[in-house]
């Protein structure tokens, strides 16, 4: 990515000596700034909210619901959750919020995601801000060197995101209990968790790395009909990767906020049965 933020010198880019002599950095007349501005605002809102909730270390469990930000809970200082995802791998020495132990994986998955890369390169780094709008950086090396060459580890975060999604699926199953842990009940929270986990899985399976690992790396689909079929399904989901990225981002925040409302006593979970 760019290593400088000064306006490009006159000798390069669209104002270079061999290019058509046009002074403005772009001639677009549409509202090209709207999409990157909205993207940046949306991502910023999530960053602020999730930072607050991740460090809060409170109000993340209201039986039978556990916030997806705190699941699985890997330290001893977690709230006790009956049959819930309490695995005290980090023991008692961990004194910070247990959310910080697990959020690194979904955070890394989304940070290196091909869609989010486009979103923040455009929205935050203006590289470029929009198509055919000159970027404000003097130099550009893309993802060829540290630190951005680390974007290539996306698939490792995909590998980690799969078990995390599996644990959130387990949490969703547990959500079909009531506050006394009796099975066979459903509340508004169960519904929110259900929608969230469907979106989380759809986003995870629509990942470009997933699509590649499933079958994209093959050269002869005809020799691997099952993987071809799976690749085709992943490809269809992949076509909606951006929408799923946003939908799952919003749904995970909504799920967490719902648990916060219940745990803080601001709201009672309406029960369907």
């Amino acid at each position: 990515m760019a290593t400088g933020t000064q306006p490009p010198p006159a000798s390069t880019g669209v104002r270079g000596p061999s290019r058509a002599a046009i002074a403005p950095r772009h001639l677009r007349t549409d509202r090209w700034w709207l999409a990157p501005a909205a993207t940046a605002a949306g991502l910023l809102a999530f960053i602020v909210y999730s930072t607050w909730r991740a460090f809060a270390n409170d109000d993340y469990y209201a039986a039978p619901y556990v916030s997806p930000f705190y699941s699985p809970c890997l330290a001893e200082n977690c709230a006790p959750m009956r049959s819930g995802p309490n695995w005290e791998i980090f023991g008692s020495w961990w004194g910070l919020s247990p959310a910080l132990l697990i959020l690194i994986f979904p955070l890394g998955f989304r940070l290196t995601c091909y869609y989010y890369r486009k979103a923040y390169y455009r929205g935050f780094w203006a590289s470029p801000p929009a198509c055919a709008v000159a970027e404000p950086h003097a130099k550009y090396s893309g993802e060829t060197r540290f630190p951005l060459i680390l974007q290539n580890i996306h698939r490792y975060f995909f590998y980690a995101a799969v078990p995390v999604a599996g644990i959130l699926t387990y949490d969703t199953v547990l959500a079909f209990r009531d506050e006394h842990y009796a099975w066979g009940h459903m509340g508004l929270g169960s519904l929110i968790f259900l929608v969230n986990i469907v979106l989380i899985w759809a986003y995870t399976l629509s990942c470009h790395s997933c699509r590649h690992i499933i079958g994209g790396r093959l050269r002869h689909f005809s020799k691997h009909p099952v993987r071809y079929r799976l690749w085709d399904w992943a490809g269809r989901l992949n076509g909606r990767h951006m929408q799923l990225a946003w939908a799952s981002l919003i749904s995970v925040a909504v799920s967490d906020f719902y648990v916060y409302l219940l745990a803080s006593g601001a709201f009672d979970d309406p029960r369907f049965f």
Partner: peptide
């Protein structure tokens, strides 16, 4: 120079 591409999709858009 594949690493230079930061997949901002302008090529697809146009």
């Amino acid at each position: 120079g594949l690493g230079y591409c930061n997949i901002t999709k302008c090529c697809t858009e146009v």
